[in-house]
Computed example of a mutant assay.
Amino acid sequence: MKKIWSFFKTIWDTFLKRSSQVVYCDDLPEKTKAHTFYIVGLKNLPWLLAFECPCGCGELIQLNLLRESRPQWSIKLNKSKSITVYPSVWRKVGCKSHFWIQESKIKWV
């Protein structure tokens, strides 16, 4: 049932063209907002990407951006400030969501 709700929520968000935003910060805020990607660290040396799980479970996903640590993700920002994340995000606990982030849009696997 949760996956069905997530599917319709994603379609609804896309239909409304709800835009995501990218925010740079020195420290992760205590309270995060939906549809917001937080890049923590320096602009030329970010070390963490954090955002709320797009399935709606409310969990905060934190992805390591440091090359020296594993697992590690990479991000790419384009001129319109949309974000692409490599590789995919696959939660092994909780909701077990698996998705790609391409140009700030969630692509479910």
Score class of each variant (00 low, 15 high):
K2W: 13
K2H: 13
W5K: 08
F8P: 04
I11L: 13
D13Y: 03
D13K: 01
T14H: 06
K17E: 10
S19H: 07
S20T: 08
V23N: 06
C25L: 03
C25S: 13
C25M: 03
D26N: 14
D26A: 14
D26V: 04
P29V: 02
E30L: 11
K31I: 05
T32I: 14
T32W: 04
A34C: 04
T36Q: 09
F37Y: 15
F37P: 00
F37V: 01
V40A: 05
G41W: 08
K43E: 14
N44C: 08
N44P: 00
P46C: 05
P46Y: 07
W47I: 04
W47F: 15
A50T: 00
F51H: 12
F51N: 02
E52W: 02
C53T: 01
C53F: 11
P54Q: 01
C55Y: 01
G56N: 03
C57V: 05
G58R: 06
I61S: 04
L63Y: 04
L63I: 00
L63K: 01
N64M: 09
L65D: 13
R67Q: 11
R67T: 07
E68S: 14
S69L: 14
P71T: 07
W73M: 06
S74T: 12
I75Q: 07
N78F: 10
S80Y: 10
K81A: 07
K81Q: 10
S82V: 09
S82F: 06
I83V: 13
T84M: 11
V85S: 04
V85D: 03
Y86G: 01
S88Q: 11
V89K: 06
K92I: 07
K92S: 06
V93I: 11
V93D: 14
G94L: 04
C95F: 02
C95D: 02
S97Q: 09
F99C: 04
W100H: 15
I101A: 02
E103Y: 06
K105L: 02
K107R: 08
V109F: 15
